[in-house]
Computed example of a mutant assay.
Amino acid sequence: MHRNSYSLAALAAAAVPGLVPVRTMPIATPVEDLDVAGIVGEDGRRVMALSPASTAAGVRLERDLKVADALSGTSLGGVTPPVLGFVKLTEGGRCAVTEAPVGRPLMLDDLAGGPDLARSLGQVLARIHTVPRYAAEAAGVESFTAEVLHAEHRTRIREVTEAGHLPAAVAQRWQALLEDEELWDFTPQFVHGDLSEESLFVTGQQISAIRDWSSSKVADAATDLAWLISSLDPERFDELYAAYREELPTSTHPRLMERAQALGEFAVAEWLAHGLEIDDADIVADARGMIADLDADLAQLARDEAERTYEEMSSREDGAI
């Protein structure tokens, strides 16, 4: 069942000894069946209450908190709000109370303001990807091989291609990417798995908190970069990526950025498949619009390449005269 912020405040008071709520504030969440509220105590303490509205949301929340607890002993401890307590719900499951994330939710437009915030995000991503694999697996996250992930991409793209939803140029590009074995030969790492504006918090020009670890896994580092490479302007992403590489103790996969770009494009196919599966015309139209934009971009790249080739041929001919 869903709960409003006042009900969540009462649950928070029951879960955290000494907490006396005096004010509440809504907090955005990317999960529809998870109720979340920020709560300020009379002593000024700020906490966050999370109450699942379904069994699936309860499972997701428990997974999130288990991973967050495991991360408290890593370099991400400072940006992972600790759990303060739980209280059982009448319908089953638990409401959890954590320290409130420091700062405010990140907006992508914030990253356009200068290089500092982009670099901070790049550094935090590097810390995520260097969490020891054994620590991640001990927290119960799923672990995937590069071969399994590659096969999943192949299956998804094949399904939308065979269903006739892709323009020829897009289908050819994606097939060529999937056939490039070197591109998909990587070592899996711990990833957040579902980065969004709702999961990242910022103070000034620094990333101050990260939440919702329920989709984390040992998989492809490009997963966490795909959203950003497809959303930021190239200059800002380059600043983020430079800081990411500087923070890593080892070198990155030589084609990590290419794979992130590919995953950003493949996400459109996944969005389309989701819309078709639930028969949502708005999602289908949105996905088809993005595919049409990609098709137009590929057509422009082909024209640009043809013009460069023609100019080079003309220059050689002029030089031979």
Rank of each mutant, 00 (worst) to 15 (best):
W227I: 05
A269F: 07
G289M: 10
L177C: 12
R3I: 03
L301G: 01
A37L: 02
S51I: 03
A287D: 09
T55E: 13
E147G: 10
V40S: 00
T187R: 14
Q206G: 10
E239Y: 06
R3L: 03
T252E: 05
F186V: 04
V47T: 08
V170Y: 00
R127D: 12
G204K: 02
H165Q: 15
G164M: 08
N4D: 15
P234F: 04
R173G: 04
A168I: 00
I321M: 06
L65V: 15
D185P: 05
F237W: 07
G122K: 10
A126G: 12
F186M: 03
R158H: 10
D185I: 09
S75Q: 13
Q261Y: 11
S208L: 03
G193E: 01
T223H: 15
M257G: 12
R94W: 10
L106F: 08
T145Q: 14
P81I: 01
T98P: 05
V87N: 05
L166P: 00
P30G: 14
L34F: 01
A163E: 01
D194Q: 01
P52G: 07
E137L: 11
L183K: 11
D110S: 09
L125P: 05
M1C: 13
V31N: 03
G58C: 00
V22T: 14
D224Q: 11
D318P: 02
A139Q: 05
V170C: 02
D212V: 03
R288Y: 08
D69I: 13
E317A: 15
S251V: 15
A299E: 09
E142K: 10
I278A: 05
L183D: 13
I207D: 00
A136K: 09
V218N: 06
P26L: 04
G264W: 12
S120A: 09
S216E: 07
P105D: 04
G289Y: 02
P249N: 08
E91R: 12
G85R: 09
D238G: 08
F237T: 11
R156K: 08
W174E: 00
G38E: 00
R308E: 15
Y134P: 03
S75I: 05
E147L: 14
G38I: 04
V31W: 00
P132K: 05
T90L: 14
G114H: 11
S120E: 10
A57R: 01
G264L: 10
A53M: 01
L50N: 01
P254H: 05
V16P: 04
E42M: 12
E307V: 12
L111H: 02
